[in-house]
């Protein structure tokens, strides 16, 4: 993969993450913000794997795996919190 293609791919993903951040700031209700965070974490996992490929670092895959695991547990915790209506 050439340098240009990598930069274009990473730029598109960065714009996507920025759109999610916009929704997270604007979202009228708390679940809206949670959905934005959910979408953002999935995008960041894909971004980490791609970054690992661009930098040729195998460690990034471990980071992506642990990040997706923690994001899943955290989102389920947020959902439980919203469900109780505290």
């Amino acid at each position: 993969m050439s340098q240009t293609i990598a930069v274009v791919f990473l730029a598109i993903m960065a714009i996507g993450i920025f759109l999610c951040l916009l929704r997270m700031l604007r979202g009228p209700t708390a679940p809206d913000r949670a959905v934005a965070v959910d979408t953002m974490t999935t995008t960041v996992v894909a971004l980490l794997v791609l970054l690992g490929f661009v930098f040729k670092r195998y460690v990034y895959l471990d980071v992506a795996l642990v990040y997706s695991l923690l994001a899943f547990v955290g989102l389920v915790a947020i959902a439980r919190f919203l469900e109780r209506g505290i």
């Binding site: 959910d38 996992v45 997706s68 899943f72 389920v76 947020i78 919203l82």
Partner: peptide
């Protein structure tokens, strides 16, 4: 892992938003 957990976390948020 993404394929299995993504529907589950979205389902949890959807349920929470319906309940709240």
């Amino acid at each position: 892992f993404v394929l299995v957990t993504n529907p589950i976390s979205s389902h949890a948020i959807a349920r929470a938003s319906r309940k709240s």
